[in-house]
Each structure stands twice: as C-alpha cells, then as structure tokens.
C-alpha cells in the first residue's frame, strides 16, 4: 500500500487541478472489474502455505492481462498492459521477480534483505547472476517510500494514474469555446 496510496492521492489531486471531479470517475465503465480483484485474490494465495504458488502467480498475470485487453480502449490501460507484459516476462523467465540488492539497500530497506533471502515468497527473490532480464526486475529504489520497484511497475502505476486523471474528466473552460464565425468577418485581412 506504500505505493498505491500516494500514487492514487497524487492522481486525484492532479485530476482536481485539471478541473475534474471524483464523481465523474464513477461513470467510468471498466469491463470485468472483478478480474482485477480475482488477480489479487490469487496472489494472496501465494503466502506461505499456499499451494502451487508459481501457477497461481502466472494465472494471476494472465487474468490481469485479460482485464487490461478487455479495457484497452480506456485511456491509460495500454500503459498498464505494457507494465503487465514487462513484469510477467521477467517473472516467468526467472520463476519470480528478481530484486536487486542495491535497490533494496538504496531504498532504505537493508534490514529486510535477510527476509527477502529467507522468505521472499513466490513472487520475489534476491537477484543473482543466474537471473535473466535483470534490468526488468525490481531495480529502481524509491527511498521516500522505502520501495524497490521495476520498470513494469512504473508503467503500471503510471497507467493507473493516467486512467484516474482522465476518468475524472475536465471542466470545459468558456474561454476556449470559439465564437461563431460571422460571414461578414471573412476576407478583410488581405485588404
């Protein structure tokens, strides 16, 4: 939630600054919203004790991709789909998301390194030289939020923020509306 709450608050603030309204977001018609909830529910089953953690993780990404494709025409969703693809690629290749030691330390989470090694779960593990596409792993340190995120995360959160801002709409400004052109006004400029 350390990443979700600030990004959502920032998106809502930008939406209001553009003249949008949160109520307008309620008019947004996302198809199959339940799939997003189902994707998260599957990942909750990844906690220790869950069965077939990797299968649940992969199935979760497939469900999330279907949700994104079903809503691809909605502003911001194409960015989310790119984020899903990037994260799924690196997770599928490495049977989990490789997390860079440097990113963990630089994000102020050095004390959690041992947790990552001992109990990273199915989704995360400490990156090693055997991991492929390591640059797509959690390599970006966000120190103020104590998070190490991936390029896919950046696309996903960026897309969600764009979706919220666009979904809040924008109040039309009267000054931007062109007055009707008068027939007699044309043709005088050339003299």
């Amino acid at each position: 939630m350390k990443l979700v709450l600030p990004s959502f608050l920032l998106a809502v603030a930008i939406g209001y600054a553009r003249g949008g309204r949160l109520a307008t977001l309620g008019q947004l018609r996302l198809r199959w919203q339940g799939l997003a909830i189902a994707g998260l529910a599957l990942q909750i089953l990844l906690w220790p004790g869950g069965m077939w953690p990797l299968i649940y993780l992969y199935a979760s990404f497939v469900i999330l991709a279907v949700f994104a494709i079903a809503n691809i025409r909605t502003t911001g969703v194409s960015l989310i789909l790119i984020g899903i693809a990037l994260n799924f690629a690196v997770i599928a290749l490495n049977q989990g998301m490789p997390v860079s030691r440097a990113a963990v330390v630089n994000s102020g989470q050095a004390s959690s390194l041992q947790d990552l090694v001992d109990d990273g779960g199915a989704k995360h593990h400490l990156a090693s030289s055997e991991d492929r596409l390591r640059f797509l792993g959690d390599v970006i340190a966000i120190r103020p939020l104590e998070q190490a995120v991936s390029l896919g995360d950046v696309f996903t959160y960026g897309g969600v923020m764009v979706l919220i801002v666009a979904g809040m709409g924008r109040r039309a400004r009267a000054s931007t509306v062109s007055p009707p052109t008068l027939v007699g006004d044309t043709g005088h400029a050339d003299g």
Binding site: V4, L28, L42, F61, H124, S150
Partner: peptide, 30 residues
C-alpha cells in the same frame, strides 16, 4: 455526491488498487 455515485467511485478505485497491487507491488509489498 450520491451514495450510488460514491459506490461506483469506490468500486472503480478498488479494482484499480487491486490491479496495481497485483501487477507490481515492488519489494516489499506492505
């Protein structure tokens, strides 16, 4: 904002939060 409108906004935000958390929570997801 009406209760109905509020519910729609809350459900849309919940779906987006679930999506964001599922795709990329980063280490560590708390």
């Amino acid at each position: 904002m009406s209760i109905r409108s509020l519910r729609r906004v809350a459900f849309a935000l919940a779906a987006l939060a679930a999506l964001a958390l599922s795709v990329g929570a980063g280490w560590r997801p708390n």
